[in-house]
Amino acid sequence: MKPLIIADKEFKSRLFLGTGKFSSSSLLRDAIEASGTELVTVALRRVELDNSKDDILSAIDRNKVNVMLNTSGARNAADAVKIARLGRAGGYEWIKLEIHPDPHYLLPDPIETLIASEILVKEGFKVLPYINADPVLAKRLEDVGVHAVMPLGAPIGSNRGLETSAMLRIIIEKALVPVVVDAGLGLPSHAAAAIEMGADAVLINTAIAAAGNPVEMAKAFAMAVEAAEKAVFAGPAAISMKASATSPQGTFDNIF
């Protein structure tokens, strides 16, 4: 596969990692290491006055991995733009734009996402919107200059896999910007299927953070993504409706 370039950065690993739900900073540090990821996401929240809590982000070495700020908690474009501007004050230029007002399915609002994308691109942010698997929306976002699109496989944290695969295929076929399948992937096989389908990368959080052993699961995802990447590079053999013998043709009619 050709190298993955998003905005001005080249990524060797096609596995991106969300940093939510990890129980400690040391576990997150080990999971980042095991995953081989070069892009992690973080969120913005009001300061808590309890300083005794473990600073989870101490696990992130910003010299080694790129950090992208998500806009989770934003209910509309105006909220998301504010979060991005606050992020910029904290040194973040990469924005995972997510606007999901519905608390049950956390499905992204396409209209607010398009409005916010246009503003943030103009303000010079690197904008990677989290979207439903909507090929038309993906193109509209591309038109306003987003740096990648991140369609969902299934609702956030649901671990159900590529439920949107039919639409993902169209997005991948048509997209001129990188496609990162984000949300809902629960198993390494889901991630592999996304890459084999032609996705440029996957973003995983819950499936790793909430696994029995997050570090081992991070490794498993890394292996699956790498295996799928190699498979795409190698070129899969053709699919056929009929059998195609793998042994030389012939029978034992005249022999037995």
């Binding site: 969300g18 940093t19 939510g20 739900k21 990890f22 997150l28 996401t41 973080v42 969120a43 913005l44 929240r45 009001r46 300061v47 989870i56 982000l57 700020l69 998500n70 989770s72 606050l86 904290g90 973040y92 956030i156 944290g157 949300a183 973003l203 959080n205 819950t206």
Partner: peptide, 10 residues
């Protein structure tokens, strides 16, 4: 005044 900090998140 709003005071915010960066936390773990997907």
């Amino acid at each position: 005044i709003e005071l915010m900090s960066f936390v773990g998140g997907g």
